[in-house]
Computed example of a mutant assay.
Amino acid sequence: MTRFVLTRLVLLVIGLFVASALIFTTLRVLPGDVAQVIAGTDSTPEQVQAIRVSLGLDRPLPAQYVDWIGGILHGDLGRSMLTGSSVTDQLLQKAQVTVPLALLSLLIALVISIPLGILSAIKHRGAAGAAMSMSSQAIAAIPVVWAGMILVAVFAVTLHWFPPQGFPRAGWDEPARALYALLLPALTIGVVEGAVLLRFIRSAALEAMGQDYVRTAAAKGLTRTRALITHGLPNVALTVVSVLALQIAGLLVGAVIIEQLFNLPGIGRMLVADVGNRDLEKVQGEILAMTGLVLVIGTAVDILARVIDPRQRESAA
């Protein structure tokens, strides 16, 4: 187990290094010039070049990359080329919206998918199971922005249950208002992601119901539902854990879109604005932070899956 954990940690470091190189290189080949953006449309070539020199953009790309990585190793993701503000500080500030949104979305997805996925498997031969299966497939196919527009039209515009947009200026100093503002965006992401997760849970539960130990438990007098819950849930839990890494990536992508739709001051909205402004230093720090989060969660999920499933430990041994 120790060797597996160390291997995963080494792969995590390698993955972060490769991701940083790809992010840095990709952003440098995009069209546009941040120095021109800062100087304005009426600037002279000499003024633009002076800004490039002051920002270090005239230096060789390998030197710029080494400086950036050196700062990251000291906990510094760089500074905005436009405002000079710390990227790390900006990320921590915006994360106060994005992280609760992602966690609340994940909670909603799990609350929807786990019981309905198991129920859909138990009732798979009946009309209820078929209806849940078809509904989950239909909902999973809906783009998250369409789902958001539908929910806004129904629950915000028509029923007036939720605010259509915005986040309180006081932020989490007013926790009730802040949570209320995030409920509809989180519901938008959670319903779509929950439908995707439901299909995996249903398949895992159906597979577990066909295992000998579940059939044996049922033969000893347990109902099919109780046999599945008592003896088959570990397999279902393993599927949930394995899929969560992919779901987290989907939640982050969904958050970028939903923050635009609901006018939330989170990381996704900030990232879109910084891309438009060609603030390379800030954009590369934001993308690397989000990529690193996905890689860290994926590594944690792999380790947790090994802990949950003794068969993986035995095969490794």
Rank of each mutant, 00 (worst) to 15 (best):
S133D: 10
A21G: 03
R125S: 12
V87G: 01
M132T: 05
F17A: 15
V301F: 02
L246H: 06
I14S: 03
L295I: 14
E286V: 15
P163V: 15
Y180M: 04
P185L: 09
E207T: 15
S135D: 04
R202N: 10
I150P: 05
L252D: 02
N277P: 00
L179M: 09
S120Y: 09
R59M: 11
I287H: 04
W172M: 02
R169V: 09
Q284D: 04
F4H: 13
A219V: 10
I229P: 02
A208K: 12
A140D: 01
A316C: 09
W146G: 02
L244H: 02
V272L: 06
P185Y: 03
I287S: 04
V99D: 03
I114T: 12
Q90G: 12
I142S: 07
G40W: 07
V99A: 12
S80P: 05
L288I: 08
L6V: 14
V301S: 06
A317Q: 13
I108F: 10
R59Y: 15
V111L: 15
S133A: 13
R269Y: 01
I14Q: 07
V307N: 10
I150S: 08
V66P: 01
I38Y: 15
G117V: 10
P143N: 15
L183M: 09
R202H: 11
N277L: 13
A316F: 11
A140I: 02
A204R: 00
H74Q: 13
S203L: 04
Q93V: 05
A39Q: 08
V99S: 05
E207Q: 14
T2P: 00
L251T: 06
A237K: 04
V144E: 09
H231L: 06
A21Y: 08
P31K: 07
H124C: 02
S242N: 12
A208M: 12
V66Y: 14
V29M: 09
I308Y: 06
P234D: 06
V144F: 00
A317E: 13
Q93A: 14
D76F: 00
L104K: 06
V154N: 05
L244Q: 01
L91K: 02
V37Y: 07
E207K: 10
Q96E: 09
L184N: 05
K94I: 00
G117K: 08
L103T: 08
L233N: 05
